[in-house]
């Protein structure tokens, strides 16, 4: 499981980090996201790669688990 912490990053870095990680290898991902924009953009990116995420919400941020 690879962890990607996108919290506090400006656009488009969250998406760039996620797509890079998807292309690098096929390990599962744990993505930490703290903004509505980043969250939608990441979901859209996952869709492009035909991936889905389990989303869980903690107080300040969301965690996306992408199993592959």
């Amino acid at each position: 499981m690879k962890q990607i912490d996108t919290r506090g990053l400006s656009c488009p870095q969250p998406v760039m980090l996620v797509s890079r990680a998807i292309k690098e290898d096929s390990s599962s991902l744990e993505i930490l996201v703290d903004g509505g924009t980043a969250s939608e953009n990441i979901l859209r990116t996952l869709e492009q790669f035909d991936l889905t995420a389990e989303v869980s919400q903690t107080e300040d941020y969301k965690t996306f688990i992408v199993n592959r």
């Binding site: 656009c11 488009p12 998406v15 760039m16 797509s19 924009t37 939608e40 953009n41 859209r44 990116t45 492009q48």
Partner: peptide, 19 residues
């Protein structure tokens, strides 16, 4: 909608996304 004029072009250049 996160409407962004700069982002429109940037996303095409960098992630080939036309959203």
């Amino acid at each position: 909608s996160r409407f962004c004029t700069m982002g429109s072009l940037r996303d095409i250049f960098i992630i080939r996304n036309f959203h």
